[in-house]
């Protein structure tokens, strides 16, 4: 049986920028595959190459056994694409947009109307069905764009940053919709910068940085090295390098590091006792505001593998989302 997507050594250059530098990966049928990376890492370019919107300089793309590098349009009936920006027609209604998108895939008139009504109901947009797309909120636009991407029941769905720039409630709803689609057997290729989102939704994840895939594995296997690690973060004011050195002497079994905003990060291979640490810090003249245990997460794996601060990456994208 073919993989849903097989990519070998794809390279793509835009003038001075090497957007993709020989990336290779496979996505199995029915899998939810996450593509995680910072802005400009090559996520959208990868989707464009896979869907025929960009031509690779080198390498091979095979979708469901069809060589798309030779025949870029041959597999387009199998795929649905939800771009990072909603690109439906502002002048058409929600219902009109879905019917139009269905017609692009050759769906007969009665079927496309039935399917559009069904999707509008499923996505909670039935009351806004006759309103122009231009009048929709950002969350509604994203939902309708996803509905348009699956109107023809594609076997493979490409989702490019589906929850960027929308409110928390809408993002949660969209994640549930993506999860439902995955459960129904659709192969999903999801790009995101939200590490938690990828961790919660994806079967496997690839980390992409500067056009190169630096790690690909299942979520469980990526988290494996962190199992048995215990992490404590203590927020305090007045922490100095001298106090940090004193901590290492006083608690030799623990690893200490001081992060941004005076957060002391403590790591150990066994359970960390909070009381002695807090007492020591307060006696050393600091003021402890908070101490919390941190569950090992994909974010830590991401930071270790890529060296990129996940928080910085999300803030950067949020700023972009607000501008849109």
């Amino acid at each position: 049986m073919f993989d849903a997507i097989a990519v070998q050594g794809i390279k793509k250059r835009f003038d001075e920028v090497q957007a993709l530098d020989g990336i290779s990966f496979n996505v199995k049928k029915g899998e939810l595959f996450g593509f995680l990376g910072p802005n400009g890492a090559g996520k959208t370019t990868t989707i464009n190459v896979l869907t025929g919107l960009a031509r690779p300089d080198a390498g091979k793309v095979v979708i469901d056994g069809i060589d798309c590098t030779r025949r870029p349009k041959a597999a387009q009936h199998l795929v649905g694409v939800v771009p990072d920006e909603s690109n439906l027609y502002p002048e058409l209604s929600g219902f009109g947009n879905l019917c139009f998108c269905a017609a692009l895939y050759g769906m007969p008139s009665k079927e496309r109307k039935r399917r559009a009504q069904r999707l509008l109901a499923d996505f909670g947009l039935d009351k806004a069905a006759d309103r122009k797309f231009a009048t929709y909120s950002k969350g509604m636009k994203r939902k309708l764009t996803i509905a348009a991407g699956i109107i023809h029941r594609p076997e493979i769905l490409f989702l490019d940053e589906p929850t960027t720039g929308i409110d928390v409630a809408s993002a949660r709803q969209l994640r549930q919709l993506i999860s439902d689609l995955h459960q129904s057997g659709t192969t999903i290729f999801l790009t995101t910068h939200y590490i938690e989102e990828a961790e919660r939704l994806c079967d496997r994840i690839a980390f992409i940085v500067s056009g190169r895939i630096v790690k690909t594995d299942s979520v469980a296997r990526l988290l494996q090295p962190l199992r048995g690690r215990h992490v404590l973060e203590i927020t305090c004011t007045g922490i100095t390098a001298k106090i940090e050195r004193a901590l290492s002497v006083e608690f030799p079994g623990l690893d200490f590091s001081i992060g941004k905003q005076s957060i002391v990060r403590v790591e150990a291979g066994e359970e960390i006792r909070v009381g002695p640490l807090v007492r020591f810090l307060e006696e050393a003249g600091t003021e402890v505001a908070e101490a919390r245990k941190v569950k090992p997460s994909l974010e830590e794996v991401f930071i270790k593998v890529t060296g990129i601060e996940a928080e910085a990456m999300e803030k950067e994208k949020e700023r972009k989302g607000r501008k849109e």
Partner: peptide, 15 residues
């Protein structure tokens, strides 16, 4: 400019 042309380019019909 508003990228809706991409939607047409993705449709499985001859260019």
């Amino acid at each position: 400019k508003n990228r809706s042309f991409e939607r047409l380019l993705l449709a499985p019909i001859p260019f």
